[in-house]
Write a protein that binds this DNA or RNA. Structure first.
Length: 461
DNA sequence: TCCTCTGACACGTTTGAATAGT
DNA sequence: AACTATTCAAACGTGTCAGAGG
């Protein structure tokens, strides 16, 4: 088994230049700013290694994606989308309290994008309140007919948020895409929780899981239903305790202890406090030798040490795109390039003529305590052209199903160009983990260009 | 044997219709 | 008649657990 650390070493490119997002004017493109809600909660999960359950009928995310937008033109209409991109080309397994690479990723399932039900709506609408993707559901059913986002279990994903100025779904292609990613929202898709800490964190924070809280009736119920259950639970508790004790990771502990408190709110606050403290104390650089951190977390650590508003970055674009800015940035996967074995990183040619600078707030310091390889490999850091790996060389597997918010599947395929089999790998995730949110923007000049992106496979709801 | 996935289950939250009150 | 507040049951979302299947 190849460790992520080893893989990371395959990349030696320097990080992209970056600028502080907090400066604001560093991201004037469109002036659109996106901030993630509940950043503390996301961080708490992220520090442990977020897992999201996927089921056949579809499962909501928790925490669910909720963002705030500003900088939109109040009277202009926008469409908001979310999709999930693989973080790398690997499949993972949970082994002895940590994630390990378990082989190459499976072929990408049909790529779908969740369209926010309010779309299209004027900028004033999007800006007046936080935008929730509560009803977004994840599934492992590749034949899903409900428009849920299809993922593979035991694979790592990064949610992406896209906003397009468009009066309706049919004019999306003429719009300018602004893409944001929040590294702390990355997660591993699972069919059953692997990390008991994640389970506990979910139970403690998800109102629907109140029945499983310690102070609740769970124990009684289990005791009544299954005498062995209590024993098992005790065992689980021990496991938790052990894992905490065994773990040399202060990082992990600092976040996990927070919700060990009895009171939920206190717990929540403590988590937040711990996080703040961490932000103050710990700084990581995805570029520095700290694969250890990522070992426990699905996404790179730098996320913890920054503010949660968006940074802006140009999305990878085909050569014929008209990017907002031109800025030499590394290589991105070529649609025609075949996936290389192992890291899948070879043979990428540049598709990203332009990448805006991204914030580089905290100069990170390595985390010495994390030891396990991460499902979200550090090689996925910006400039490392990660997520496309699972899809690179597999252009045929990306389906673009466009679902309309008003019921029937929208015939957007009319402008989606070539059929799924012709889609090239998605543009690489330009996630710069030194930023809060990575922001991409690009034009869609015509159907042909448009069709090169896997983005447009809308999910319905 | 191990790992992953599935479906039934109990419990809590959310939602919306029905009803009562103003 | 219109509006608001309350009640309540069904639907939904959740993690647990046992067992199936590769």
């Amino acid at each position: 088994m190849q460790s992520i650390r080893d893989l990371k070493s395959n990349f030696s490119g320097p990080p992209p230049s970056s600028a502080s997002a907090s400066g604001g004017d560093a991201y004037l493109q469109g002036n659109i700013r996106m901030t993630l809600e509940d950043p503390d909660l996301w961080r708490a999960f992220h520090q442990i290694g977020t897992e999201m359950i996927i089921t056949k009928p579809g499962r909501r995310m928790f925490p669910h994606c909720k963002v705030n937008l500003s900088g939109l033109i109040p009277c202009a209409k926008y469409i908001l989308l979310v999709d999930m991109v693989p973080q790398d080309g690997f499949r993972y397994k949970w082994n002895k309290e940590k994630w390990e690479v378990a082989g190459k990723a499976e072929p990408q399932p049909p790529c779908r994008t969740y369209l926010h039900p309010d779309s299209p709506a004027p900028g004033s609408h999007w800006m007046k309140q936080s935008i929730s993707f509560l009803k977004l559901k994840l599934t492992n059913n590749t034949l899903d007919q409900h428009g849920h986002i299809i993922l593979h279990s035991m694979h790592c994903y990064q949610p992406r948020f896209h906003i397009v100025q468009a009066d309706d779904l049919f004019s999306v292609r003429w719009g300018v895409f602004q893409t944001f990613t929040f590294p702390e929202t990355s997660f591993t898709a699972v069919t059953a929780y692997q990390n008991t800490k994640i389970t506990k964190l979910k139970i403690d924070h998800n109102p629907f899981a109140k029945g499983f809280r310690d102070e609740g009736t769970t124990k009684k119920r289990r005791a009544n239903k299954n005498p062995g259950g209590v024993e098992k639970q005790a065992k689980m508790s021990d496991m938790n305790r052990d894992s905490e004790e065994d773990s040399p990771s202060d990082f992990c502990r600092s976040s996990f202890e927070g919700y060990e408190a009895d009171d939920g709110e206190l717990r929540k606050r403590k988590v937040a406090d711990d996080m703040k403290e961490e932000v103050k104390e710990e700084r990581y650089s995805p570029w520095s030798a700290e694969p250890e951190h990522a070992a426990k977390n699905c996404s790179p650590p730098a996320a913890e040490s920054r503010d949660l508003y968006s940074a802006e970055q140009l999305v990878p674009a085909p050569a014929n795109y008209q990017p907002y800015r031109v800025h030499e940035y590394g290589k991105s996967p070529s649609p025609s390039s075949s996936r290389t074995s192992g890291t899948g990183r070879g043979n990428f040619e540049s598709r990203v003529p332009d990448v805006a600078t991204v914030p580089d707030h905290d100069s990170p310091k390595p985390r010495p305590h994390d030891v396990a390889p991460s499902p979200c490999a550090p090689q996925d850091y910006p400039g490392v052209l990660n997520m496309t790996m699972a899809q690179a060389g597999k252009p045929g597997v990306i389906g673009h199903h466009i679902y309309g918010p008003y019921g029937a599947e929208q015939p957007l395929t009319q402008w989606s160009g070539p059929g799924p089999a012709q889609y090239p790998p998605p543009h690489h995730m330009t996630a710069d983990y030194t930023t809060q949110a990575v922001h991409h923007g690009y034009h869609h000049g015509n159907v042909a260009e448009w069709s090169q992106y896997p983005l447009f496979s809308y999910s319905c709801w």
